[in-house]
Amino acid sequence: MTVATITRQDVVNFLYTEAKLLDEWKLTEWAALFTEDASYTIPPIGDPDANPKDSLFFVHDTRARLQERAERLLKKEAHVEYPHSTTLRNYHNIMVGDLDSPVIRVECNFTTHRTKREVLDTFIGRHIYEIVQMNNGLAIKSKKVILHLDSLRPQGKISLIL
């Protein structure tokens, strides 16, 4: 397999594409960005390196479950997101690791706003991605969301994909 040369700009564009798919509620397209062995996790607040055996995560999705998550949120019976909330995701301070590595580690800060029924909630934190090349493009092998909050108050829930 020929490996294309990846630039920092390719990685940044890829992340922005991910954010845009989520903001546009193209969730199955979002899920398709992930590799077959991918994971999507949100560890407990204040304990980003927690072990999922001993600690209660918010999200600890395998590839199959993140697919279910995406598909569920598109259903009318996913009441919390019906009608869909309006969201805006900003990724900042993007740090791209070694581009020649088979697995590229990328970190960024995020600010995700969600508004529904005239209540605006904001989630802030840090994303840690493992990104690989796949089918001449990029794919996410893992996405870990580290919330930089004291608690989920007043947001109350993580009904969105962060």
Binding site: I42, P52, L56, F57, H60, R65, V80, G156, K157, I158
Partner: peptide
């Protein structure tokens, strides 16, 4: 056990957020 928990329960589960909405 924990996978079963997170599938339904908690603020990131597939059910608890719908309860909150109700």
């Amino acid at each position: 056990r924990n996978d079963n928990f997170l599938e339904f329960l908690g603020p990131g589960g597939f059910a608890t957020p719908d309860d909150n909405e109700a």
